[in-house]
C-alpha cells in the first residue's frame, strides 16, 4: 500500500447510519449516508442521534429486560439498565454494553468508516440507482463538517457514475467546501429555516448570516440546487417567515423551493439518547394537516416562487 493510500485509509469519520433503498431524500432509489455531528442545535431536530460528533449508545427502553448484562460488560462500571452511559464522564463509548445486550435494546450510533469501505458498500446498489435515476445522498448530521472525507467519498462515487446529492444545513466554511466537496456533488439540497437572524439564533443556536452567504455563493457557482424549508409548527410555518424566505429565494434568482412538512416520529428517539439530545425543548407531536401545508405553499407561491412536490 502506498503511503498516500495508507494515510487515506487511516482517516475515518463516524457514520450514524447508512439507509439503503431510500425513496425519499432525492429522486429514484437511493442510499443515504447519515454523518455524525452537526453545528446547529435546532430544537426540533429530527435526527437527534446525529447531533454529537462522538459515538453514543442509543437505548430502546421498551426492549430492556433488566437482565443487567450491560453492568457486567462495562469496563468502567457506568452502564446500567435504564441509564444513559454517556452521561457519565467515564464512559468510553466502547460499545461493549451494546454487544452484551441480549435483547438488542442498545445500539451504538457512530461507526468509524473509511472512504474506500463506505464507497464500496454504497456502490453495491449501483444498478438500483442507475435504473431508477437515483444515487447516494449525503445527509446527517452535517456532511460538510467532514468536507474532506465527504469530498473523497463523493469523488469515489462520481468515478463509479453514481450521482451524489448533498443535504446541508448551509453552515460550513466555504473554502474547504468549495475545494473538497463541491466539485463532486451533482445536486445540493440546501435547508433554510428562518429568514430572521434573531429568530434563527433562538431556534438553532446560530446566526443565519453565514448560511445566507453560502447560499448566495452556491447560486453563483451555478450548481444544481434546491432550497428546502422545514415546516415546523409555531417556529418556521408563519406567514412572515415563509414570505421572507420566498422573497429571499426570489432575490437570488431561484424559481422554486421545497417545503418539508414536520414529522413527529422523532420524539421517542431522543429519550434513549445522551443528555444533550434529550434536552431539545421542542415537543410538538402532531403531523401537519394537509390544509396547513397548502396554506404554507400558497404563501410561497404568493411571492412568485414555485413549490416543488
Amino acid at each position: 500500500m502506498s503511503t498516500t493510500a495508507a494515510r487515506t485509509r487511516r482517516r475515518q469519520v463516524l457514520i450514524a447510519d447508512v439507509k439503503r433503498n431510500s425513496l425519499d431524500d432525492g429522486p429514484g432509489i437511493r442510499s443515504v449516508v447519515f454523518f455524525k455531528g452537526c453545528p446547529l442545535r435546532c430544537s426540533w431536530c429530527q435526527n437527534p442521534e446525529t447531533l454529537s460528533t462522538r459515538a453514543e449508545v442509543q437505548r430502546s427502553p421498551e426492549l430492556c429486560t433488566r437482565c443487567e448484562s450491560c453492568i457486567t460488560a462495562c469496563p468502567t462500571h457506568v452502564a446500567r439498565p435504564g441509564t444513559d452511559v454517556q452521561d457519565a464522564t467515564r464512559c468510553q463509548r466502547c460499545g461493549r454494553c451494546v454487544d452484551a445486550c441480549p435483547s438488542g435494546a442498545r445500539r451504538l450510533v457512530g461507526t468509524p468508516a473509511y472512504v474506500e469501505d463506505l464507497a464500496h458498500l454504497l456502490a453495491l446498489d449501483a444498478p438500483f440507482y442507475r435504473r431508477s435515476g437515483g444515487g447516494v445522498t449525503l445527509s446527517g448530521g452535517e456532511p460538510t463538517l467532514h468536507a474532506g472525507f465527504a469530498g473523497r467519498l463523493a469523488a469515489r462515487l462520481a468515478e463509479a457514475q453514481i450521482p451524489v446529492l448533498l443535504e446541508t444545513c448551509g453552515l460550513f466554511g466555504w473554502t474547504s467546501f468549495e475545494r473538497h466537496l463541491l466539485p463532486h456533488v451533482t445536486t445540493i439540497y440546501f435547508d433554510l429555516k428562518l429568514a430572521d437572524d434573531q429568530r434563527h439564533r433562538e431556534a438553532t443556536g446560530h446566526s443565519n448570516r453565514r448560511i445566507l452567504s453560502n447560499l448566495r455563493r452556491l447560486v453563483d457557482t451555478g450548481s444544481e440546487l434546491l432550497v428546502r424549508v422545514p415546516l415546523v409548527p409555531d417556529i418556521t410555518d408563519d406567514a412572515e417567515n415563509l414570505t421572507a424566505i420566498a422573497r429571499h429565494v426570489r432575490s437570488l434568482g431561484l424559481a422554486r423551493l421545497a417545503l418539508l412538512p414536520y414529522n413527529p416520529l422523532w420524539i421517542p428517539k431522543r429519550q434513549g439518547l445522551a443528555a444533550g439530545a434529550r434536552a431539545l425543548p421542542y415537543s410538538h407531536d402532531r403531523w401537519l394537516s394537509d390544509q396547513d401545508v397548502a396554506r404554507c405553499a400558497d404563501l410561497v407561491r404568493g411571492e412568485g416562487i414555485e413549490v416543488s412536490p
Partner: peptide, 14 residues
C-alpha cells in the same frame, strides 16, 4: 410503476 420496473431491471442486471 417506474420503481417496480427499476427493481426488476436492477435484479436482472445483477
Amino acid at each position: 410503476v417506474d420503481r417496480m420496473t427499476a427493481y426488476v431491471q436492477a435484479y436482472t442486471d445483477l
